[in-house]
Amino acid sequence: MQDFVNQLKDALIKSSLELDSSVINLIKKAKEREEKELSKNSKASLVVLNSILENLELSKKTKIPMCQDTGMFDVFVDIGRDNKNSLATIEKAIIKSCTLASEEGNFRKSVVSEPVFDRVNTKTNLPPIITYNIIDGDELTVRVLLKGFGSENCCGVKMLNPTAAKEGVVEAVLDIVKTAGGKPCPPICVGIGLGGTMERAAYLSKRALIRDFDKENLDKRYIELEEEILRKINDTKIGSGGFGGVTTALFVNIEQEPTHIAGLPLAVSINCWADRKAQITYRGKIDD
């Protein structure tokens, strides 16, 4: 089990210190766009973007997490039908990895054991949220979001009418993003889940957030919808830091699935610019 645990633990700690180069490039592009603007809003947003880039260099160098909210472990497991590991072993290995990453990575202990009455801190940053998904093949892929709650608090679900069409989807997403405003640490990352049931749409919205950067929608209409929504979110001029610049979102991803004739479930997951993701693919057997 040690090999798997070390791989996942190292990926988790690294994700708290460094962003994927594709996200850093999107932040740099946002900076270039803001530099061309002359408004006070853009100047303030530019200060934020420069601070973000300085912060990323510091976290890489000092090993201090880029953000104090090292989040809840939001774990998405894809298990190939021919994979030889039992669910129990996989779960045990994931929990061990999260436990060690929290300790060795100096993650903030941000989890309480019960939501309403006592809210006692578990002092371990556990339990993780784990969702399992069965896929073809023999691989085991584990993707983890270090999900901060400044942005998680801004997520939303809306059960649209089946006739709402593209216009209804765009309007509902913009509603959620505008309500979030400057709260979730813009520039934000937006995952949209469409179809399924209420909870499936929410799951899909997170799958959209953690989608591999080199993967795009197979259906061209959804690629165009992602581009349209990204453009319209940036037109809101919420801006980096909420200061009103020209970049509010870095990317918009959509995942969609079959749904019922009577509905069009929609969910929006928002992540802050600190889009921290860990991912490992494991082919072998995780020994106990």
Binding site: S51, N55, S59, I64, P65, Q68, C185, G241, C272
Partner: peptide
């Protein structure tokens, strides 16, 4: 202050 800039 600048959100997410905890190392800074």
């Amino acid at each position: 202050a600048f959100g997410g800039c905890g190392a800074l």
